[in-house]
Amino acid sequence: MTQFRAILGKDLRLEIRSGESTIALIALSLLILVVIVFALSQAGARGTEAGAGALWIAMLFSGMLGAVRALSSERDNGTIYALLVSPVDRTTIYFAKLTAAVVFMAIAEVAAVVLMVLFFNLNFDFGLLRMLPILALGVIGFGALATVLSAVSGHTRMGDLILPVLAVPLYVPALIAGVKASAAMLSGAPFTSAAIWIKILIAFDLLFVGAGYLLFEFVIAEN
């Protein structure tokens, strides 16, 4: 636990000092939302469904950036080797990096929710609060997937290119579930109406976190 706290504390401290990841994530979310708003306004589609879809797409791409940064900053400095030769368990590194990625994504997600409400003419009401647990599930699941895949892609020459190719198809079922559940919450439908989508999200979270726990040790090593 001390080592987990040390790695997470170090990552958060570095992020507070540089703001690199969070600012980039918020900027990317803003860009994606603006593009989608303009695209959908041409098609005449607005409202909860479109807003939820735009929000999850923004989360998907900004999340990818957040997870990559959590590990690539270690690779850029070579400090990943210091972590690997230290007596820290690989799974501790994984959960510290996952937690850091989730924190960065959550900050970006709060900004994205505010932008979504403004851009899609939604209200700051109870529906947003009801959507938060669903977004949290999305952030955890995608953070887990992207963290383990960024460890894989870090070994390849075209790592930044390979990550979305690997991550997006794997996440599509959870993405659909997340959009459906979020739209239901925003439109004021009862929780039960979105139960199946929430269950799918939970199942994918367990799958991705579990896979990361089991695989990280093997994918982070150089050989």
Partner: peptide, 29 residues
């Protein structure tokens, strides 16, 4: 039981000298 020094210093450039050593001391429990 292993200490390693390579061409890369394994130091975090945005942490202070003291913070770097504190981090590694914590990492080694």
């Amino acid at each position: 039981r292993l200490g390693l020094l390579t061409h890369q210093t394994f130091l975090y450039r945005n942490l202070t000298a003291r913070e770097n050593l504190e981090f590694y001391a914590a990492l080694y429990g």
